[in-house]
Design a protein around this nucleic acid. Structure first.
Lengths: 231, 231
DNA sequence: CGCAGCCTTGACAAATGTCAACAAACGTGG
DNA sequence: CCACGTTTGTTGACATTTGTCAAGGCTGCG
């Protein structure tokens, strides 16, 4: 792997405090790959051969059952995914595919587990990371169980607004995938956007404008215990 | 705390390999409490003062938003809960209340974090535990997004069957709480039970009988990637 | 016994999904 | 650059699923 990526990986909280020794072990076994869009990276149920790190592009984590499919997470740079499966050496629960052209690092899970066992700084960093993943999953479950699809969309838009810091922004996801992520059909999403017009949401293709955030907030009732993605 | 509980806690995977030193630190600060049924133990949003361990009884983890409420998990002996909030020192995402008379150990989160920082065996055990919690949460999200309420109930019954090893068993939850856990209303659950009669499910109060598991399995299509609660 | 809480049922309403048609956007090869 | 076909997004009509409300029965407990 070109050394140029080393620093990028080092900067991740997950690897920041690893001993030089363990870091080298990980880097020695690492591959970097460039993938075209819409390529399947892993399939749920497979054994966790690699811990993945998205350097560029984006990856969709999804799952299928009985002919249905749903998007669970979108991974953007620079982040790892399927850490839980890697460290516990159990099958992947989600499939992954690239959404765009993506550059991805593959760390053999065996190396990850080896360094994890030896390097307690790494073990502690993994705890922090997993706790965050777990909490994100709980938030997502609350979002699904406590809110209607209209409320989920409204809160999603407000989260995007906070992320970009602007009342006007581009959707970073195809609408069909956004629909799946929010737990509804594409048709339903179309109608949900219409349903938010009275609250000042203007849609033009992938361009979103929130005319008056206060009005939308009053409807969406965002909660830090569901919508804050930092803690 | 009476020493009699020490061994019980030691037997938990989470504490099995801790150094004597760290274990003693944890036990020194620990409280044991007996709670009557339907007592609120914690409220979502509160700072995580304690890591909880259920020794006896059962605890409902639930969440509220905008006047609605949903049950997310039922914790049974001997298990810890709200580990993620404790180690990362961030607010609880779920509220907790006893379902029955319960005996619960409270470990000050500060102690947990202190031992976690010093004892790498404990850190590693926490990783395993959190990875399991995370995966359980992902499974629950898949269950919710990929299945109808009838399918969720059918698979829930099959999981209970596997847990008890018998085609005839008692529901361990009040029906209204089971409904909330499965993401539906009590009325809907009543009808869902009716809807499973053609697949050989007999209900008598809290008593369930699965006449022909094959038939129910053919309908429910259980998957290890959603329904296996061990990995 | 009588009250309170849970469960069930029926009638109805709201939310969401399905299907079909068509329009718009995109990418490819000529 | 255009023409074409493919994919995505939208819309309408309709079906299904799920929730709501109200009533009544059952159960457990003081």
């Amino acid at each position: 792997m070109p050394e140029s990526h080393f620093q990028e990986i080092r900067n991740l909280a997950l690897f920041a405090n690893i001993e030089a020794d363990g870091f080298e072990t990980l880097m020695r076994g690492a591959y970097v790959h460039n993938f075209p869009p819409r390529i399947d990276l892993i399939t749920e149920g497979d054994p966790p051969d690699f811990l993945h790190i998205v350097l560029a592009g984006s990856v969709d984590l999804y799952s299928s059952w009985n002919g249905r499919e749903t998007s669970l997470v979108t991974v953007r740079p620079v982040t790892t995914f399927i850490l839980a499966a890697s460290v516990n050496d159990v099958p992947y629960l989600m499939s992954a595919r690239t959404l765009e052209k993506s550059r991805i690092i593959l760390l053999p899970s065996e190396d990850v587990r080896a360094v994890f066992a030896k390097d307690s700084a790494f073990a502690r960093a993994i705890v922090t990371e997993l706790a965050q993943c777990y909490r994100a999953a709980i938030k997502s479950t609350k979002d699904l169980k406590l809110r209607t699809s209209l409320e989920r969309l409204a809160n999603y838009l407000l989260r995007q607004r906070n992320r970009t810091g602007s009342n006007e922004f581009e959707l970073t996801l195809e609408k069909r995938r956004l629909a799946s992520f929010l737990g509804m059909t594409p048709e339903n999403l179309s109608r949900a956007f219409k349903g938010l017009v009275p609250y000042g949401v203007k849609v033009n293709g992938t361009q979103i404008r929130i005319a008056d955030p206060e009005v939308l907030i009053r409807f969406a009732k965002p909660s830090p215990l569901i919508d804050d993605h930092s803690t």
